[in-house]
């Protein structure tokens, strides 16, 4: 799978301009013969929407969403937006579109609502994780914070996920001493998830500044062998391309059969209260 990591700088609340940005990246990725392009979380809307969430919300038949789905005839696309459900609730979602149709819509489950975050004030939460079949095997999507919880990666793994996409809007914070704490947490987590689940993993974080908050970029991809395949620069918009091999998943599962040996019964017994 030839993947394009589109580390863009979305315009806050301007879906028309963001659509253009998507079109440009998609065009470039198609020219580079990529199979899949991955955009960051809320790529069509930007992050600090607050009350604007309701105004920029889209349904799946919205012009911009339909346009990207139609562009997926030539390349599979992972992109994010604010979704207004039939229940008139507003979700932070990412979509997987392929061959001109919407294959899967994931509603962010873990909405951070602490320190600088207030997502649960504005969004309704999704309530599950699932995998979906694509031209490139079984894929799963986790939106930012989703990926930092055990339940999400556990469920995706048990459902047989082979490639995990993680669109993200991770801000720079906690700059003390060397480096960036947020980057360090994500790099550790991404490598851990790829290595222990023995899956290919694509993490795409945005760049740009909104209301004083800088998103640090640094998008990256890991093979199922835990090897970092690409890393984009921090803080600036960038596009990167890498190849992820299904052969790596096979080899990883021969070398390190953690996925095969996982005993779900232990978890089940614990949750049922049989074991304390």
């Amino acid at each position: 799978m030839r993947v394009c990591l589109a580390q863009i700088k979305p315009f806050l609340g301007d879906t028309a301009k963001n659509l253009e940005l998507h079109e440009e990246c998609i065009e470039q990725a198609v020219a580079e013969k990529c199979d899949v392009i991955v955009f960051p979380e809320l790529s069509l809307t930007g992050y600090y929407l607050m009350d604007y969430v309701n105004d920029v919300a889209m349904k799946t038949d919205d012009k911009a969403v339909k346009r990207i789905i139609s562009l997926s005839k030539d390349i599979s696309v992972v992109f994010g937006f604010v979704y207004e459900g039939e229940d008139n609730l507003f979700y932070n979602v990412c979509a997987y579109a392929e061959k001109g149709r919407l294959v899967h819509l994931h509603k962010k489950v873990y909405l951070p609502d602490y320190t600088m975050f207030e997502e649960a004030r504005y969004f309704a939460a999704g309530n599950g994780f699932s995998v979906f079949d694509t031209a490139f095997g079984k894929c799963g999507m986790l939106i930012c914070e989703d990926a930092l919880h055990l339940s999400s990666i556990y469920v995706l793994s048990r459902m047989g996920v082979q490639t995990v996409f993680i669109p993200s809007n991770s801000p720079a914070r906690g700059v003390v001493g060397d480096g960036l704490e947020a980057a360090s947490i994500w790099q550790t987590s991404n490598k851990y998830t790829a290595s222990l689940l023995t899956v290919n993993l694509v993490y795409v974080n945005r760049a740009g500044v909104e209301d004083g908050v800088a998103f640090w970029g640094g998008s990256e991809a890991y093979s199922a062998l835990g090897k970092r395949k690409i890393q984009l620069p921090q803080f600036e918009a960038a596009i990167g391309i890498t190849e992820l091999e299904t052969a790596d998943i096979r080899l990883a599962r021969i070398h390190s059969p953690f996925y095969r040996d996982e005993k779900s019964q232990i978890l089940l017994d614990y949750l049922k209260g049989d074991k304390k």
């Binding site: 600088m116 801000p171 914070r173 004083g212 800088a214």
Partner: peptide, 14 residues
Amino acid sequence: PVIAKVSQRTIGRD
């Protein structure tokens, strides 16, 4: 005024 975020606790943000 917008303050550039650097630390874990930025005035006005967290």
